[in-house]
Every structure is written in C-alpha cells, then in structure tokens.
Nucleic acid binder design. Sequence first.
DNA 1: GATCGTTTCGTAACCGTTTTCCAGCGGCTA
DNA 2: TAGCCGCTGGAAAACGGTTACGAAACGATC
Lengths: 362, 362
Amino acid sequence: MSHRKPSSDTTRATIRDVAEQAGVSVASVSRVLSGNYPVSDDLRRRVMKVVGDLDYVTNAHARSLAGGGTPTVAILINNITGAAFAHVAKGVEGAATLRGWLSLVGTTGDDPERELALVNLMRQQGVAAVVLLGGAYDYDEYQLRMARFARSLDAAGSHLVLVGRPPLEGDVPATTVDYDNESGAYAMASHLLSAGHRRVLILPGPAELTTAQGRLRGARRAFEAYGVPFEQGLVRHGPYDDEHGYGAVEAALHETPDFTAVLAGTDVVAAGAMQALRAAGLRVPEDVSIVGYDDIPLASQLTPQLTTVHVPYEEMGRVALRAVADRREGDAARRRSADGDHLVLGTHVVVRNSVQPPPTRR
Amino acid sequence: MSHRKPSSDTTRATIRDVAEQAGVSVASVSRVLSGNYPVSDDLRRRVMKVVGDLDYVTNAHARSLAGGGTPTVAILINNITGAAFAHVAKGVEGAATLRGWLSLVGTTGDDPERELALVNLMRQQGVAAVVLLGGAYDYDEYQLRMARFARSLDAAGSHLVLVGRPPLEGDVPATTVDYDNESGAYAMASHLLSAGHRRVLILPGPAELTTAQGRLRGARRAFEAYGVPFEQGLVRHGPYDDEHGYGAVEAALHETPDFTAVLAGTDVVAAGAMQALRAAGLRVPEDVSIVGYDDIPLASQLTPQLTTVHVPYEEMGRVALRAVADRREGDAARRRSADGDHLVLGTHVVVRNSVQPPPTRR
DNA sequence: GATCGTTTCGTAACCGTTTTCCAGCGGCTA
DNA sequence: TAGCCGCTGGAAAACGGTTACGAAACGATC
C-alpha cells in the first residue's frame, strides 16, 4: 500500500493518483496521455475514465523537466499597447499556438536594463526562443551585452530573434527579422518631393533609436536624390507619441513656419501633428500635407486618411516564429549555417488622402 | 569523482556543475542563490564566482517543481491588437512584473472552444491565476463549462478572474472585475437626449456579447427616463469593428435616414460610422452627432475628437491582479469569504467635440 | 510442444531544484 | 573540562513526470 500523504484540498491530482485508482502503473498512464506508445484499448479506456473523474491534468513543469513539455516562446515588447508592435506580437503568438507552442510576454517599458533582465529571466524559463520587438538602443555596451545574451541563449539550446531592429554585429547566433526602414522613408519622402514639396518638417522619432535613425537616413537620401537641400533645422526628434507630434508642430509653427508638409516617423506622431495643424487653423492637406509610417489601423481612420508606408508587422511576427521553429527542427549542420540569419521584409507606401501639392501661397 | 555525462554543447549548466566546480554541495549553491539561508561570505564568493564563469541560471521548471518558483498569471485575451483590452493586459502585466510574477498570454480569437481549451492548458502550467478578458458569450452550456473550470482551477490552488464581463452565476470560486456597462451607456444616451436628439442610430455590438447587451440596456433605460419612444428599427447589431460601423451607417442612411445622432458601442465602431457619414456628405457634428464607448487613444485622435465614456481599462487590469495576489497571501478564512468576489469600477463620460444639438432641418 | 517474435505493461532511473534533517565545530558558561 | 548552543554546510528525500530496459503473455511457426 501507498504511504503518500492523502490528497489535500488544494493539491491537484498527480499521475500516481490516476495510476492507483485505475490499477495500472504510472508509466502506463503517461503513455496513454502522451499517446506516443502503443497501448491496449482496455488500458486506454480505464485510464481515461479515471482522468475524467479526477479532472487530472499533467503538471507542465514536471513534464518539461523530464524531457517532454511544450516549447515556449518569449515575446519581449516595449508596450503591448503600441499598435505597431502589438501586431508583431499577434503574429508571433498566432504562429506559436498554431504549432502548439506557448507564449510568454514581458514588457520592457523602454528600459534597456529591464530588457536585459527579462532576457535573463526567460533563459531561466528554458524558452525555445526569445523574440525581441522594436528598435534597439545605439549604445555600445548595450550591443555587447545583447551579444552575450545571444550566445548564452544559444548555448542553452534557445535562440534570440530580433524583430524590427538591425542585426547585431559580429558573429552572433541570433536571427533578425527586419524591414527596410530606410527605403520606406526614402519612398515616403520622394512622394512628398515629387508632389512639389520642398520645405518639409521631419519628425523621425527618438534620436537614439535605430528605427528613427534609419527613417531619417532614408528621408535625407531622397532629398539628395532630388537635389533639394536638406535643412537640419526642420528635423525635430522626440518620442513616438502623438503628444510629441503635437508639440513639435506647434513649436515649428513658431520658429520655421514655412514648411508645407510634415514627414512623421510614425502614424501616431502624424496624428498628433495633424491636430496641431488644425488647432492652428491650417487645413490638411490643402495647406499642409502630412505622411506617416507604419500603416496601423489608425492611419485609415483619421480624416483625411493618412498616406503612409505599410510595414507587414504581423507577417514579421509569423516569419520570426517560423524561423526559429525551422531551426529547431533542422539538423545541426543547417543550424550552424543559419547563424546570423537576417530576413528583411518589404514595405510599400499606401497612398491615401493626406498629400496634395503645396499651396501656391500661404 | 563524478560519472555524470560531460556537459554537452547545447546543455545548460546545472546546479551540480556549479557545486562540483566550487567544491561545495548543491544545497549550498541553492542557498547562496535563493538567499534565504545564512551562508558565510567565503562560500558566497566561491559560488558566485563559478556562477559567473559558467553563466549559470537556475532551471525554472525544476525550481517550481520543487516548491519554489515564480508565480505566473495567464492572460487570455480575444485579440492583443484590440485597443481596449490590450490596456487591461498592460495593467495585468505591469502589476504582475511589479510583484515579480510572470505573464503568459493566449489569444482566444473570439472562439469559445479555444477559450476553454486555453484555460485547461493554463491549468497544466500551474499558473497562480488565469485572467479572462472581454465580454462573455451568453450560452448556457458555455457558462456551465466555465463554472466547472473555475472549480477545477480553485481545486488546484489557482484562481479564475473574469474581467469586463458579468460574474458567473451560482456559487463559483471566481473573482470578477467589471465596470458598469449599463450606466455608462445610460449616461452617454442621456447626453445625446439632453442635447435634443430624438432619433438616434444605435450600434451596440454583437448581440450575443454581454457587454453589448448591457450597453443596449443602458441606452434603452435612458430613452425611457426621457420619455422618448425607443425605436427598435434604429438598433443594428454587428461586430466591434470599424467596418461594421461603416456598413451599418451606410445601410441606415438608405433605410432610416432621419437619425440625427449615432450611439456607437465602441470608439472603433464610431470611427467607422464617422467615415460613412462623411462619405455621404454629412458633417460631424453639425449634421449628425456621434458618441463612442471605451475612450481608447483613437477617440481623441479623430476629427472631431470623440465624446465617449471612459473605462478605466488599465486600472481594471491592475485591480484584477491585486485581487488574486491578495487572496494568495491571505489566510484560508479570508479566502473563503472572498469567494464570488465582484469588484465594479466606475466609468464617466468625457465630453469632446462630436456632439451638437440636432440641426433644425436637414 | 518448444522456440520465437510481437505486443503490452511494469520497474526504476533519471530530469534539476528545494528543503528537512543532522553533524561538525568553535565559543561560552558553570 | 564537560555540556550546551548558535552557526554552517552536507546528505538525501521529495516534487511529478518520461522513458530505457526487461519481463510476461500470447499467437504463430516448425
């Protein structure tokens, strides 16, 4: 007879309880539940009956300790509420559950320290992969630490995936899923320039964020291509939110009011900018044209609907998960060759109603 | 000497490896790391040195098997991308990490089956709580199954928290964090009525969702209070998205074009409605007034800015987590008394620019 | 009827921690 | 100097599963 403690009130049934009550061994129970081993119909019936009666579910921790266990992907995101990267998260999560994977999520709140700490925490969880969402910080030390983590994860059989940021430098075992910030911004700026705009207010985003840097570079390249002098005084950095869009336009209207268009680093920034323009009695796009970036749902709900560049965020999430799932199934050779993977997805501008040629006079 | 297998390439270091290399017992390593037991400085130094060298992190699965382990909260959400409940998720996640808890997330995609399956999956994970976000389905069988799950979770030492939906009926061990859908809608409708509107198009949302039902009830009550006949032909059900808002207004303009205001069940629906109005050449709010519900960021970014009712979504998330954290620390007596907890938070209408008295003629 | 190959199932050794005992040890009191 | 106590650290038993290995049962084959 057994001398295990009688099942307490708030203790879930164990596989042993099931085995005893069904009069079989724990191994048998394990086998009918995981279904990867032949069992007789009689056994299966007996076990399932008891499983139902006891409302038994296997303990995931024990299971993954012993070798089985469902893979888990960790999603590290700046802010779940941010529309753009929430879509990436959706893509990752969707692709994950499609394969029966679980999704852990942590928010970094724009804090590099916290981001690093979270990667470590996820390492403890033994996740199959950690997916890091959003632009990176351009500090050297940060990059170095991230590279170290990539190696740690790799050594533990996990893998780091960077989404929406440039790949780490050097021979780092990490996968990057990216889109071309620069050429998107190039296209957007070209759109404005070819409409005749020459003085455009540029709100790229936070100066230290790689995405903002890329978008700014793209815009500048377009100006060069068009032979239009690039005016540093017309670019204003700041956070990716509507308040900054509002404030920046407000300030610009005081200091350099001769711009005829604004190139926002983000749809949300564009929304803020649009409000400031209206508050100043300017019409969009008759007086001032405006373009965004990201093509989040908001873009098509504004009035006028925003011309912007579409980034396949959700697709990026799916691609990110697929990359790591493939690598997990691939053989060692394939895995090694895939080191430093870098997938870049295309963007395209979607033309709506927020751009017109500049007014002949103001 | 040890005869354990030499550490393979893709196998993380174990506590044993650390112990051996530091020349101490595994118990000591565990103690140094968890820090809940007195150890000498010398021991601590030796262990930490090796931990650093080996880049060791404890295995979370093993840890929680053995009794330790960080609590995890499961967030079950319809769609991460949905603005309103993404804020709840943010609240939950924020409060969770504040206490050192982890957050698992699963998306239900509007599928009751999947929702139920996820609750079960989370039960396997041994989560401290599962937080279910969003309106519930009004099927009897669904409610019954959910009640069963609540009991299962409770029996396993976990707990079910329902956010943004009415509590389960009967003596079910679940906590509900809710807001008053009905009185919010009542206030919103009153706002319209007191502005002089009499014929208002109502787009409550999906007929089978409890939130939509509540909002509709509230509106109807307001009409009764004002002695205005409630016209069933002016309510159109449909999903909570802008396409439905657009389509419903479009249809209504054909069939019952004499409405002077639209009461949308959601800010997003309102956005769609607004577009349809504009497409038909109507001005907002001069020709038609419009109000939303939820007060998501979008509401203040539309033109005109949307009058809506503010729901403290993020706060609800925080409250939800606090409730389950408290219960976890409380004694058995307190826990029992807290069965069937029901916290309801207040809402308030925020007046912006989308409502005017109806035009004297059309 | 003995041999052999298949199924099917039980036994027991792990997986990597935490935690309960218990032992050694130096210092203090009597 | 014996006895006791506080402080450290080790040995080993859980925690709840999975799975390699071996054995029993059974029909088929010669």
